[in-house]
Design a binder for these strands. Structure first.
Lengths: 345, 345
DNA sequence: CTGAAAGCGCTTACAG
DNA sequence: CTGAAAGCGCTTACAG
């Protein structure tokens, strides 16, 4: 491993001083360095494959072009897609991500932030696998921060999150417009804001349409639980003709249960799911009609806002951005079956 | 945002020189600094919440304690689990990961490596979402490197990969020992080493047992394709009683197809899948018997080997490590159904 | 037009 | 026992 060439090496080879090398390589040669020397320097740099040491640069310029990312593995919905999107936008803006995979407990988080601060990150992005409330640590206070898929209840920092309420309402509307009246809500039973907003959205949309509240099918966020709740509902005296699922895994469980019972989708049962980054819905049999989470858009915007502040384009302006979740028609929804058992008990 | 305190600030507050601060804070005070000054320094550091600037440290010590990670989003099987495991081990060893999400094409990769080298990473880890052949770039040559879930055909660098052949053989053996004779192989039709090794493993195990080659069900690596291939096989005149699936999504497709057709698992059909980090198999209905990919173990070992070399404990020793994939009995496998149609055409 | 100097924040010999 | 100096690799005023 040949030692990396330094600016000094280039200067020596070109027969000039380090300062000249720096000026030329940074495009500030005009009216400062003679044409001949410029050529010599550029040639020497090329020959030595010179690249500036980013560490030294960061120390000198007091900017690392590094964004510290705080994230944690999801209960299920992993932040994978969001993280990838964030990485792409950051890289495009000349920033790298230093990832800290903090666990559930708060102590690790303090340590992670401290480590990141020691490394002089320019800013923070917090990426949650599912929408939650998140209070930034005190230690982050002096450093520009953007939250993604989580919100600060105190609103002291900028956050970017999907409009879960509207997403759920959109999903519900799809069923309503198709004529469905008996609608089930297969939902994660966790008490997070995410679930709360989604449930509220479904209820609100139904109420607006003058329809009764949905049949609640509370489940743990896993396939089996989704299947068993759906099975039970489908076997009841008055089964739903339309089902809203709050998470992809639950929807998968529902599909499984329907298949077992010989209940056709969408012929006998229409199904809409919210997407949570698991990339299951689009591939299912049949492909599921969903409301999508705009991962790319959210991550893009987060990086854009942060970088804008870091580059001094704007001062700090704290706001709470709500992203719309677009519906995505696929094959799991259709009109209410004429044969639908309409009997009342 | 109060400026971070530097060693100079601590020295000033304690009324000593920067050198003394450094010595005391690095535990080299013995016989060098008087007890009184030690106390003063420690107290001053505490009071100012002093933490050394990692950038300056890295520049001075010529070690960044940073590992550059090259990865890319999987076709399907994401490297998520491997990455998380690697992060945990690295953090435990005092290293941070600088992640580069290189895309499919090689040009981005060169850029990623260059950027990482500019940032003076101490070493590289390459994490592939699925087992492939990977040739390290020339630029990486001088820097310690470990490959995870990929192998260098030239064997110039250490690699850690699952033994896919054995994994597939293990999966097959489970079915054989249960008495299955008509075995199907639902496989990704990609031409990667991963698929090749798995197919070979199944064939070899069957041959060893004196059984005929498996019925091949080639599919694209998605749920739908898995379902349709399985449906077709199940509807054939001589359907398999046991099915080996090379990927979780395919297995999910198979489960879906079986459910549709009213074919019970494991009563009518036994199913074994290889796991690829999607975390679907364990949750399915029924939970699938699988052969697991030892993500934790591989990532651990990769970091351990790399750090050992970086810390100078061992010289560079290049080897190709093959990890065993342990079988995991769950509920999708059982004895051959007595009612199995045994007719020959 | 060009080079010497200062300084980003640290540690490690090296004088005293 | 303690402080001044050198140096990691860079850039940016500042003399000449």
């Amino acid at each position: 491993m040949a030692r990396r060439a330094t600016a000094q090496d280039v200067a020596d080879l070109a027969g000039v001083s380090r300062s000249s090398v720096s000026l030329v390589l940074n495009g500030r040669a005009e009216g400062n360095i003679s044409a001949a020397k410029q050529v010599a320097i550029i040639e020497a740099a090329r020959q030595l494959s010179y690249r500036p040491n980013a560490l030294a640069l960061s120390l000198r310029l007091q900017r690392t072009h590094t964004i510290g990312v705080l994230t944690w593995p999801g209960g299920r919905g992993s932040p994978g897609g969001l993280l990838h999107a964030a990485w792409v936008s950051a890289a495009a803006a000349g920033y790298l991500l230093l990832l800290m995979d903090v666990g559930k407990d708060r102590e690790h988080e303090v340590r992670a932030v401290t480590t990141l601060l020691d490394r002089q990150v320019d800013g923070f992005i917090v990426v949650a696998p599912e929408l939650i409330e998140y209070r930034p640590l005190e230690a982050m206070a002096g450093t520009p921060t953007v939250l993604v898929n989580c919100v600060d209840p105190e609103r002291t920092v900028t956050s970017i999150a999907p409009d879960e309420f509207e997403a759920a309402a959109n999903a519900t509307r799809i069923l309503i417009e198709l004529g469905h009246r008996r609608i089930g809500l297969l939902t994660d039973d966790a008490g997070t804001v995410e679930v709360r907003d989604r449930v509220a959205g479904v209820h609100a949309e139904l109420a607006t349409a003058g329809l009764p509240a949905p049949t609640m099918l509370p489940a743990r966020r896993d396939i089996q639980s989704g299947a068993s709740q759906t099975r039970q509902a489908l076997l009841s005296s008055e089964p739903p003709t339309g089902l809203v699922c709050t998470h992809e895994r639950l929807a998968l469980g529902a599909v499984l249960a329907a298949a077992e019972l010989g209940i056709g989708i969408p012929t006998d049962l229409s199904l809409v799911s919210l997407e949570d980054g698991e990339h299951l819905a689009a591939e299912l049999v049949p492909p599921l009609t969903t409301v999508q989470r705009p991962d790319r858009g959210m991550a893009d915007e987060a990086v854009r806002m942060l970088v804008r502040e870091l580059d001094g384009v704007t001062g700090p302006d704290v706001r709470q951005l709500s992203f719309v979740c677009p519906p995505r028609q696929r094959a799991s929804t259709g009109p209410v079956p004429v044969s639908a058992p309409a009997g009342r008990p």
